[in-house]
């Protein structure tokens, strides 16, 4: 690991002032649960690390009349304990519960969860974001069991690691981002981007911007996240589905199936407020349509069907007892 300068400014301004215009020169440190791993794995070698730990304005939950504002550096544990979120953002809370490690959520932040880098094992073993060796993709005929089944026609074949991202998109959240030019608001579903080159990142953030707030509207929605996981402890899901059923319609967003959270408009439309078991099943079928699995991950298509069906049933209190 290369030596770096560690800074911990006390204001948002201070943070922004310390960030570089070039990716990789500086890195933001929130809980550090992913950043420190990335440093150790040599995935980034910044000359400066900027910690958010002393920036009070980035922490905490504010309940407003028609929305809930979450500071990006709020820990996931803090979110779990919030009754308003439990009521208005059930899908988010269930996604956090899925992370299933007290240690991880005690230090991990919502901003960090949304900005974490992919866990693709080619990437993490030093073969780059696209898993290339000698100009050829290692992923295409290598072990791609955990890789994308949607949105994988470009060079990016990893899956977006965040399971809170799909929940926030389903809930219609927006994200506030601050940089030297001020603040901008990005819809959660616009925040995630598929990189087209090795040096791109996976979000709409610029290198000198900070994600500051996550705003969740207080709609009358029934929402849920269903995750397919194997091991009970800290681990990654195979596939997740977050759904939100409200007056404005039904949103179905898949996780761990594409380089970004994957919105299935078709599944949302197919449901259109109908939530009987047969409708839920149909939505699962529709959500799985158009998948383009790689050589080893066709099984994920079947998982999408199940996850969507079960998320809908869960959101509407019809969960089957195992």
């Amino acid at each position: 690991m290369q030596d770096f300068e560690y800074t911990a400014p006390t204001s948002l301004e201070g943070v922004i002032g310390l960030l570089s215009e070039t990716w990789g020169e500086t890195e933001i440190y929130a809980g550090g649960t992913d950043l420190v791993t990335c440093l150790k794995q040599g995935l980034t070698a910044p000359r400066r690390v900027v910690s958010l730990r002393n920036v009070k304005e980035l922490k905490g939950i504010t309940i407003l009349d028609d929305s809930i504002e979450i500071g990006a550096a709020t820990t996931l544990t803090t979110l779990l304990g919030n009754a308003e979120l439990a009521k208005h953002a059930t899908a988010l809370i269930q996604a956090i519960e899925g992370i299933n490690s007290k240690q991880m959520i005690n230090v991990g932040t919502l901003g960090g969860d949304l900005c974490q880098r992919p866990r693709c094992w080619f990437y993490r073993n030093g073969y780059g974001l696209f898993g290339i060796e000698d100009g050829k993709s290692l992923i295409e005929d290598g072990d791609n069991r955990y890789h994308a089944i949607f949105g994988n026609d470009g060079p990016a074949k990893f899956v977006s690691a965040s399971s809170t991202g799909p929940a926030l998109i389903a809930l219609g959240a927006s994200l506030i981002v601050s940089g030297p030019e001020g603040e901008r608001t990005i819809a959660a579903w616009d925040f995630f981007q598929t990189p087209q080159s090795e040096s791109d990142r996976e979000t709409a953030l610029k290198s000198n911007e900070v994600l500051t707030k996550i705003i969740i509207p207080k709609n009358e929605t029934q929402s849920a996240t269903y995750e397919i996981r194997h091991r009970a402890g800290l681990d990654w899901p195979y596939v997740t589905a977050s759904v939100a059923i409200g007056k404005e319609g039904t949103k179905v967003v898949l996780g761990h199936v594409a380089p970004t959270p994957w919105v299935s408009d078709a599944a949302g439309k197919a449901l259109n407020g109908r939530v009987k078991k047969a409708d839920a099943e149909k939505a699962g079928e529709v959500a799985a349509e158009g998948a383009t699995p790689l050589s080893q991950n066709a099984y994920k298509v079947a998982m999408v069907k199940t996850a969507v069906k079960r998320a809908v049933l869960r959101a509407t209190g019809q969960e089957e007892e195992a």
């Binding site: 094992w121 080619f122 993490r124 073993n125 073969y127 060796e133 050829k136 290692l138 290598g142 072990d143």
Partner: peptide, 13 residues
């Protein structure tokens, strides 16, 4: 899990 081209163990963690 080994990568069949590079011989690297992909899950050596």
């Amino acid at each position: 899990v080994y990568d069949n081209r590079t011989g690297r163990m992909l899950n050596a963690d």
